[in-house]
Design a binder for these strands. Structure first.
Lengths: 342, 342
DNA sequence: ACACCATTTGTAAGCGCTTACATCAACAAT
DNA sequence: ATTGTTGATGTAAGCGCTTACAAATGGTGT
């Protein structure tokens, strides 16, 4: 007491228990190799000293960290929150820890984070979307770190991915929109530069239009970052157009929430005067009024399956299988038949 | 090519550049100590080999990780997102990396995470709220890891904190509510068990009532986890009461959003029939309709200041000062005078 | 020409842990 | 008794890096 003692090490525990460091290490990592009496003595010493293994030393010696890294584009809104939570829950169940960082949709930052995570000894990496420089994949290969792509599914890609087809999910929604009678279609997309998911969603709308005999060139498209304010601003611009689009399809629920807010501010009735759709079906979608017609993405399922697959890869039990998750249309109140009286 | 080469080490770089490992290390950590010609040669080797320092080895040798850990109660909703983002941004500016984990409001999980983060060599820790077992603080002391408390400010506490007074912030809102004429007040609080912030917010309402001559025992209080669905459910129960409260003060915006959703579902007009208030002023508060009257917490400012203070502590430049952040009432549309016709 | 200093670089000792291998004890089979 | 076998434990060599200290180098001032 009074004396500042520094943290106990394996050595201290070994001395306290009267055994070698190897035995203590074994007690902690493969207890079945140590006879009960010894183990008890060691564990007691661990307890009474309040010993916590030094992670860096452990990683260095074992070359395993039981850590998985994930790099998501943003933590700012809820798009990734739920899926990531499920991912983490499943990882924990399998004895892994998750390290998260966000790249702010910046490829250079993502590259930096990947290096950081690898340097920190991540056993595997979860990445969002397929699109990134080839040398990053080479780097991961060189460091022998398995990686899995989520939030996107592409059977053509050589990289394993757990996700859904953004094209067909958005396509399905677009077909409903068209079936409701809409012809003047506008879309507020996320920034497609370096974002294959955003690209695919636009593509989904275009394909649906063509399939129904509409000229996809008539699609009014605005690209903007995935932020509420940006969605509101873009919606305002669309409403200034003449003739106005009868429906505004948004790249995700966040943009749609912004659109709805602006509609409210402008006194434009949704869906009476203009319909609005979202994507993701995050909690927000059910809260705004009118509640959003959107595409439900089973984020928890995706997160869980991604964790399962990635740990399998890390443990050499899988070469990397791709898993396709099914999305589902959620019809709420923000989409209705168009009124061409405007 | 074809041959699987493993990741290059300091040694490889040293050989490639024809210098010792010490010189390479110095190039990376204190370049000014190395003469330009040598440095260039080394850097070139680093580049061409694609070398990334091994973090575990570095931490072990230097006993510094330039990593800050943060344990937040949840990532599930946006309560902590913005503040944490600001925290991270400021840390990055000062050359630190942030490691985040969430405890799901579970003290045992939090304790576990603290140990994990310390074992990983975190140079400092950000914790939410004051309330936790004393031995945790002892553990941190023993490992010489400075910690800072955020989202709460208590000048009495011996621990440094960066935050605001939950009691007076909520008290101010409650005074407005009372000034608007409300007498039948209900509150949907977060779970107060182990959560000093939730406790203080309830306390704030009670104090305001007493100060205005109301009996704080007449406060109808429901405690429930901070989730939208829980807020909705609690609101439903309150509306079944006779007489109905004329205002429902919620522990945060998430609960309030749930309350609003349920009001909508039940066909109860807000604020005509019942007023609702929130806390935090997250983005959600401006999106729901009616927009929430709430308490604005300057999350970004709090995050930034917390980062500044914590790094100062880590670098021995501060003993740990507490910083008080000012909150501000945001009057929107969900609060109005009561109508006692119900 | 010399000692003296500052600057640049090299040498090597750890940091705390895991694990291959060596050792040892106890017991069974011969 | 001897040998072999098995299981528990100890020994010690790293893992890749930083850094105290030593050594070498190249001026200065005298």
């Amino acid at each position: 007491m009074g004396k500042t003692r520094s943290a106990p090490t394996l050595n201290d525990v070994a001395k306290a228990a009267g055994v070698s460091t190897a035995t203590v290490s074994r007690c902690l990592n493969s207890p079945e190799q140590v006879i009960e009496a010894t183990r008890e003595r060691v564990m007691h010493a661990v307890e009474s000293l309040g010993y916590t293994p030094n992670f860096a030393a452990r990683v260095m010696a074992a070359k395993r960290s039981f850590t998985i890294g994930a790099i998501i584009p943003t933590m700012d809104n809820a798009i990734f929150a739920r899926g990531l939570q499920a991912f983490q829950d499943q990882l924990r169940e399998d004895g892994y820890t998750l390290l998260v960082s966000s790249s702010a949709y910046d490829p250079a930052a993502e590259r930096e984070q990947i290096r950081t995570l690898v340097a920190r000894g991540a056993d595997g990496l979860l990445l969002i979307g397929h699109e990134r420089d080839a040398d990053i994949y080479a780097y991961l290969e060189c460091h022998q770190v398995p990686s899995l792509i989520a939030w996107s599914y592409d059977p053509e890609a050589q990289r394993p991915s757990v996700g859904f087809s953004n094209t067909s999910a958005m396509g399905e929604l677009a077909r409903s929109v068209i079936a409701a009678g809409h012809r003047r279609i506008a879309m507020i997309s996320g920034v497609t530069q370096g974002n294959d998911r955003a690209k695919s969603r636009v593509e989904g709308v275009r394909q649906a239009m063509e399939a129904d005999g509409l000229d996809s060139a008539t699609l009014t498209l605005i690209e903007t970052p995935y932020e509420i304010d940006m969605g509101a601003e873009a919606f305002g611009r669309l409403m200034a157009l003449a003739p106005r689009p009868t429906v505004v399809m948004c790249g995700n629920d966040v943009l749609a929430a912004g659109a709805l807010r602006e509609a409210h501010r402008l006194g434009i009735q949704v869906p009476e005067q203009v319909s609005v759709t979202g994507f993701d079906d995050i909690e927000l979608a059910g809260i705004v009024s009118p509640a959003l017609t959107t595409v439900h993405v089973p984020h928890r399922e995706m997160g869980r399956k991604a964790a399962l697959e990635l740990t399998a890869m890390v443990e050499g039990k899988s070469e990397g299988r791709s898993v396709c998750i099914n999305t589902k249309l959620v019809i709420r109140h923000s989409l209705a038949e168009p009124s061409y009286c405007s």
